[in-house]
Amino acid sequence: MDLFSGTGGFSKGFENAGGFEVVHGIDVLPVAIETFKANHRGAFAVTGDIRKVRRSEVSEKTGLGRGDVDVIIGGPPCQGFSSIRPFRSSVDDDPRNSLFEEFASYVNYFRPKILVMENVVGLATYEGGNTIDSILETFSSLGYDCEWRIVNASNFGVPQKRERLILLGVERGGHLTFPEFTHASASKTIGHKNRDRMHTYAVPGATKLAVGQFETLPDAVTVREAIDDLPIVHSGQTAERYMLAPKSDYQRERRANSSEVLTLHTSTRHSAKMLEIISHSGDNISCIPKHLITSGFSSCYSRLRGDEPAVTITVNFVHPASNKCIHPDLNRALTPREGARLQSFDDDFIFKGNRAQIVKQIGNAVPPLLGQAIARSVLSMLGAPAVQRLS
């Protein structure tokens, strides 16, 4: 079950790992659920406020009850942590619940073997760490052993230095393990005062914050390795066919199930002034002549480096004024297709809605390859005998 599912990128990663069937998804945004349904056709998908959907209805529609669900995943929105209280009861639904409490209520009702919660890194230090402690206490009161780590998506094949907090939970006494690294990354991490909370594999010597063993792994996937098979388009242009064969394993994997038709590869039509600004773009806003801009954050009007993973993709990655999203070689912002590639969506993943809605869905998503890496850990947890908890 995928709660606060958005497009369903997280659960698509679980599905791609093999061994999982996505049975339910719920999100408050109608267009996101349309996308979820298009890619999880067998799931019971619900649009609406999770606080107003009865667990008994979900149980009836899916045919699943207590103990029948293996895994519940999801990312409660940040505002869901503003009023965490001791978990009150097993009441089917309660409109007073915070959004996090709704996640906990699903867990309490269906009693999955495993729970996975992903969120922003800031949750680790929110309210001085008291919030994450309350979350752990809530799940413990429900009979689950939990641990959390900060992970970097570039360590799992995603061409993006996207950091997330991942919390894993297992029924009391079960086996708990975090995903195995597939790629080494030289990217710095946000960090945490407790280094044991950093589940990060880096190139030896790249950062003092890195932890984990240093065995030989392939380098992290770069921006060019992710997108340079796509046709060249300039400001305001569209390409609807692939012109080149895949140049990297990553590109081959993203195109494996797609036809000759290419979707979402349309560039924003930039104004003459914006094109002049873009022509000066570099690592940060300081590369832009002062007379061309009036203000902006350091990452505004800046160009991605082609030889390393992208910075975190946001919901405005087609607009250079908002974040670091200018193509490494061309004078334009990324296209929606390039953003989807950097988020590790396969080219045949179906997005619903207009262009602006699709861009936001892409930027908000959990990268499917990160979901796939976590799913493999969950598979091992489901099949492993009861052993000591991860410390």
Score class of each variant (00 low, 15 high):
Val121Ser: 10
Ile190Cys: 07
Gly122Ala: 11
Ala220Leu: 05
Glu276Tyr: 06
Gln251Trp: 03
Gly9Val: 00
Val170Arg: 12
Ile313Asn: 04
Gly191Gln: 04
Arg88Leu: 12
Ser299Thr: 15
Ser59Met: 01
Ala184Thr: 06
Ala256Ser: 14
Pro385Cys: 10
Leu64Lys: 14
Arg305Asn: 12
Arg88Lys: 15
Asn39Ser: 06
Phe87Asn: 11
Ala272Leu: 14
Pro159Arg: 05
Ala310Thr: 11
Arg255Gln: 10
Tyr242Gln: 01
Leu3Ile: 02
Arg172Leu: 09
Phe14Asn: 07
Phe44Ile: 06
Cys325Pro: 07
His199Trp: 13
Glu260Val: 06
Trp148Cys: 11
Lys247Cys: 03
Leu29Gln: 08
Ala272Arg: 15
Thr7Pro: 00
Gly122Phe: 08
Ser90Leu: 14
Val107Ser: 11
Gly169Val: 06
Val158Gln: 02
Ile33Lys: 04
Val58Arg: 04
Asn39Pro: 08
Ser344Cys: 10
Phe317Gln: 03
Pro95Asp: 13
Gly143Arg: 09
Leu369Pro: 05
Arg96Asn: 15
Arg341Glu: 01
Ile374Thr: 08
Gly296Cys: 07
Leu330Ile: 07
Gly353Ala: 13
Ala340Trp: 00
Glu118Asn: 12
Ile166Glu: 05
Pro336Asp: 14
Ser11Asp: 02
Val58Leu: 02
Gly174Ile: 03
Val23Met: 00
Ile33Pro: 00
Asn97Cys: 06
Val158Leu: 02
Leu304Glu: 01
Leu334Gln: 06
Ile227His: 00
Asn155Gln: 12
Val71Leu: 10
Thr207Asn: 12
Ile150Phe: 04
Asp196Arg: 07
Asp68His: 08
Ala340Ile: 02
Glu60Val: 04
Arg85Phe: 02
Leu370Thr: 09
Thr138Gln: 08
Arg85His: 13
Arg149Ala: 05
Ser302Ala: 13
Gly169Tyr: 06
Val46Gln: 10
Leu29Asp: 09
Arg303Cys: 05
Gly18Tyr: 08
Ile227Tyr: 07
Gly19Pro: 13
Ile26Arg: 00
Phe349Val: 05
Ser281Lys: 03
Lys37Thr: 13
Ala220Phe: 04
Asn97Arg: 14
Asn16Ile: 03
Pro289Val: 07
Asp229His: 12
Val71Cys: 06
Asn364Val: 05
Gln388Tyr: 07
Gly205Ile: 00
